[in-house]
């Protein structure tokens, strides 16, 4: 596979390596050091770094500015973009802004509903949905045109991604929904956090049966648990999350001071198992406010050192 963009993530995947991405949440303030420090912790252990876009609808520093900070440090940022807060003018405009800094990856999301965040009484936009945002970026990149039909001078060169939840309802469309995102133009997929490995492997099998793994690079989402409490919270409170009872039990059977370590163990074991699954092309390690653990996870999973590409 020949890469279509200068994206480092795309090059790593095209060269046949298992890719490793991670994510950083921007600060709730304007201090650039926060994002720089997080990036410094992980930059040698991952290929690319996602920057979340006002995740859970809590207002933060914008994803684009934080991505620019990473780019200036020489990293390969993945700009997360939600359709909740911007209409098609703002989406296209921000995409061009990102492209002007040679940000070469974008992840298209609809975004959590604003009722979860700090502006619950605000309006949402949803002019496009995530599927249509994928189409829009592909149109801008491949046709070199705006949605309105005019030519773009220096079109964006972006590797286009989407999220997928192998555990989401309705059951019948878990795989068709992925197929639809691929048809819309998604080139890489970062999945929801995986704890139920059996169920994920079942999903992957169906993906492979339809040949979808040939058309898209699937990065399995991994989030280490810090404690049994976090496991219970993820299981019971986070929509679309599948945490098996044995994971909760394994953590709660561990003494409190060792639970974090056990959480890392679970994560490393999962990566080692999923590395062998057909169609898994890499891992998206989301260590939420725990970025300092990413290097350990990557090293212990046998994914270090990261390949050099260019």
């Amino acid at each position: 596979m020949k890469p279509k963009t200068p994206s480092k993530l795309e090059k790593v995947l095209a060269a046949g390596h298992l890719a490793v991405t991670s994510e950083c949440g921007p600060p709730r303030g304007s201090d650039p050091e926060v994002i720089v420090k997080k990036a410094e912790l992980i930059k040698d252990h991952v290929d690319s770094v996602n920057i979340t876009d006002n995740q859970t609808s809590v207002t933060r520093m914008c994803s684009l500015a934080a991505c620019i900070r990473l780019k200036l440090l020489g990293l390969d940022p993945v700009l997360q973009m939600v359709t909740r807060d911007r209409n098609r003018i703002a989406l296209q405009s921000d995409i061009l802004g990102a492209a002007s800094f040679d940000i070469n990856n974008i992840l298209c999301l609809s975004g959590d509903h604003q009722s979860f965040g700090d502006c619950a009484t605000g309006q949402n936009v949803h002019d496009l949905d995530s599927m249509q945002l994928i189409q829009t970026i592909r149109h801008m990149r491949d046709e070199g045109k705006f949605l309105g039909g005019d030519d773009i001078k220096r079109p964006p060169e972006m590797f286009v991604g989407a999220a997928a939840n192998p555990f989401a309802d309705p059951f019948e469309i878990r795989v068709p929904r992925l197929a639809k995102k691929i048809a819309a133009g998604a080139e890489f997929i970062q999945t929801q956090c995986i704890y139920n490995l059996d169920k994920f492997e079942e999903w992957m099998k169906q993906v492979v049966d339809r040949g979808l793994h040939e058309k898209v690079s699937i990065l399995a989402g991994m989030t280490p648990m810090k404690s049994a409490g976090m496991a219970r919270y993820m299981k019971n409170r986070v929509p679309g999350m599948d945490v098996p009872d044995e994971v909760v039990k394994r953590l709660s059977d561990t003494p409190k001071e060792k639970q974090a370590e056990e959480g890392i163990n679970i994560c490393v074991e999962a990566i080692q198992r999923l590395k062998e699954v057909e169609g898994v092309r890499g891992f998206h390690v989301m260590a939420i406010e725990w970025e300092e653990k990413v290097p350990e996870i990557v090293e212990r999973s046998g994914l270090y050192p990261r390949p050099k590409v260019d």
């Binding site: 609809s110 509903h113 949402n124 949803h126 949905d129 309802d169 309705p170 639809k180 929509p239 679309g240």
Partner: peptide, 15 residues
């Protein structure tokens, strides 16, 4: 809630 035309979003749980 998100007027998603190609849904569902990731938040759909148990219908």
């Amino acid at each position: 809630a998100k007027r998603v035309l190609n849904g569902p979003c990731g938040g759909s749980t148990d219908g």
